[in-house]
Design a protein around this nucleic acid. Sequence first.
DNA 1: CTGAAAGCGCTAACAT
DNA 2: ATGTTAGCGCTTTCAG
Lengths: 338, 338
Amino acid sequence: MREVAQLAGVSRMTVSRVVSDPDVVLPATRDRVNRAIADLGYVPDKAAGGLSSRRTGFVALMLPTLTNANFASVAHGLTEVLRGSDYDLLIAYTDYDLGEEERQLRNLLARRPEAIVLTGASHSREIARLLLAANIPILEIADLPHRPIEHVIGFSNHEVGRTAARYLLDRGFTRLGAIGAVYDGSVLDHRGEERIRGFEEELRRSGLPTTGVIRHGIAPLSYDHGVGALQELQRRAPDTQALFAVSDLSAVGVVMECQRQGLRVPDDLSIMGFGNFEIGREINPPLTTINVDFHGLGSQTGRLIVDLLGSATPPAREAAHRVDVGLAVIERNTVRPA
Amino acid sequence: MREVAQLAGVSRMTVSRVVSDPDVVLPATRDRVNRAIADLGYVPDKAAGGLSSRRTGFVALMLPTLTNANFASVAHGLTEVLRGSDYDLLIAYTDYDLGEEERQLRNLLARRPEAIVLTGASHSREIARLLLAANIPILEIADLPHRPIEHVIGFSNHEVGRTAARYLLDRGFTRLGAIGAVYDGSVLDHRGEERIRGFEEELRRSGLPTTGVIRHGIAPLSYDHGVGALQELQRRAPDTQALFAVSDLSAVGVVMECQRQGLRVPDDLSIMGFGNFEIGREINPPLTTINVDFHGLGSQTGRLIVDLLGSATPPAREAAHRVDVGLAVIERNTVRPA
DNA sequence: CTGAAAGCGCTAACAT
DNA sequence: ATGTTAGCGCTTTCAG
C-alpha cells in the first residue's frame, strides 16, 4: 500500500479510501490511485484491515461433508445473499468427524468470522461455550434442535420421518420398514436418526410393529447402504410392503438392488426417500421422496445474517430466531398408489 | 490475550509462547497460562498473528463446484496432509463462473494464503498476474495445462479421451460416439472439452468419422445431460454402437434413458464414462469408466506444498513441478466385450 | 526462561 | 477532499 501511495502521490489513507469508499475521493485522485493499484497488482490485506476496522468481512460455514448436493444448495443460497452485502463465505468441512469439527471451529474462530453457520451438531458444552464467547451470531441450520445455541433455520427431521410414515400409512400399507444408520450416541448422524425416530413414533401411534425399522452401517449414507440395508430388512422383516430410507442415496441403492433381485418397484416393494436428490428423478421408476428447500434455507440464513450484522443494536441474545422452512412430499413412482 | 496474561500473572509474550511454542516455557508457568486460556475461552487471533509473523497458516483451494465427489476427494487428500503440518485448508468455489472465479481469487489473495491450489482454468492474463504477484506457490491440479502458471499436478484430459476411444476401438467398434458440453470459448468446461477432443483425435487417426461426437448443453454435466445428449445422438448418428460420455453422471443418464427406451446395454449400445463416481458402480449394469486417483492427487499436492513452504529457499520459479498421476480404465459391464 | 519495545498493514478518529 | 496520529492483537527481536 505504501508503494501505491507513493506512485499515486497521495497518502496511504487516500489509497485506503479509494479501496473501501471510492465516492469520497476526488475522481481525478481516485483514477490516479486506481492506476497505481493496477500497475502494482496491489491486493489489500483484509486481515490487516480487519484488525484495524474490527470487520473481517466474512461469514463461516461449517459443513459435515463436501459431497452433499443439498448442502451445496445451502451454500449457494447463502453466497448469493452475502455477495450482495459484501461478505465472503468461507467453508470448512468436518467429514462427519467430531474431533475435526472442534478443530475446524477453532481455526475458523481464530480468523474472526462475523457470523458462523453450523450444520453439524456441535453440542459439546465446550464448543457451545467457545461459540458463544465469540460474541457473533451463531446460526444452526438444517435441523430444529430443542436446545439451540442461538438462531435456528431449519426443518424438523423428526417430522420428516412422521410425514413419510403417514404418507405410507395413508396409502394403506401396514407392513412398513425404514432404513437408516446405526446411531452410536455420537452426533454423527443425528439428523438421520431423528428421521427414523419420527417414523417409529408414527408406527407406534398406529399400533404397528417396528420390526421393519433397520439401523444398518454408519453415516454418511450412500447407495451401497441401501443394498446392504435392504438385504438385512429382507432377513428380518421379509413381508415388508413399503420402505422409507432416511436418504435418497440409500433409497436409490434399494431400487437398484431390487432390479438385480428381480423385485418390481413399486409392485413388490414401495420405496420413498428423503432429500430430493437429482439421481432420484433419473432412475426407473423415478423416486418418491421428501423435499426441503435447501436453497431457500440458505438465502434465508443469509438474509438473517445481513439483518443481524446490519442492525447497530448489540447482539440481543434473547431474541434468537427460529424458522421452520417446512418440507413437502414429492410424489413420483416408487410408491404404489392407494 | 491481555486478560489471559493478567489472569496468569505473566506478560503477553509468555502467553504467545505458550500458544505457539509451549516447550520453551517453564511447565509451571505454562500450566498457569493454559488454565487462564481455558477459563477465559481465549482463542488467539490468527489474523493478528499472521500480520506480525508473516505466516497466515492456511492454504486456499479453489473448486469449480461443491458437488463433485472427485474434487471432494482431492480436498480430503489435501486436508490429511496439511493437517499434519499445521496448515488449514480454506475452500472457495466458483460454480463454474468466470467472473466469480476472479472475485473469489481476489478475496482469497486478500487473506494471504501461503499457497493456492486451483482447479479452474484461471488463465486470464490478469488473474495469472495477480497470482504470480502474490509470490506464493501456485498449484494447478486436475489437468495438465500446456502453459501452466507454476506447478501442476494432474492428468491429461486429452489422454482420457484418447484412452476411451482406443478402448472402444480395441473392442472392434467402428461407429463411435461421444457426448460432452458445448464449448463456448470460455473456460467453463475446459476439461470436458479436452476429453472430447482427445476422443476425436483418435477417431481421426483411425480414419473414422466424428459425426457421433455431440456437444450438447452446458457444463457442469449431470444426469439429464446424458438423456438429452443421447436423444440428439440418436437423431444425428442413429447407428452408433458405442458411446463415451465425458462424465459418469452423463453416462448414467444415458443408461437410464436406454432403460426407458427399452435399449439393452451393452447389447444395443455400449457406454463408458469418466470419473468413477459411486453411482456408476450401483446401476445395472455397472458402468465401465475411467478412474483417476483424485485422493492421491490431493495428498501429492499437499506434500508438494509442505515441501515448498518448508524449504527456506526462496521460491525458485524455474523449478516448477509437473506431475502426471495417470488414469486407468475400470472395466465393468456397459461395454460389450470384443 | 521471561519481558519490553517495535512494528506487521491497515483504518478510525480527528485534524486541516 | 486529504492528511496525521494512534492503535487493532499479535510476534519479532533483543535484553535481561
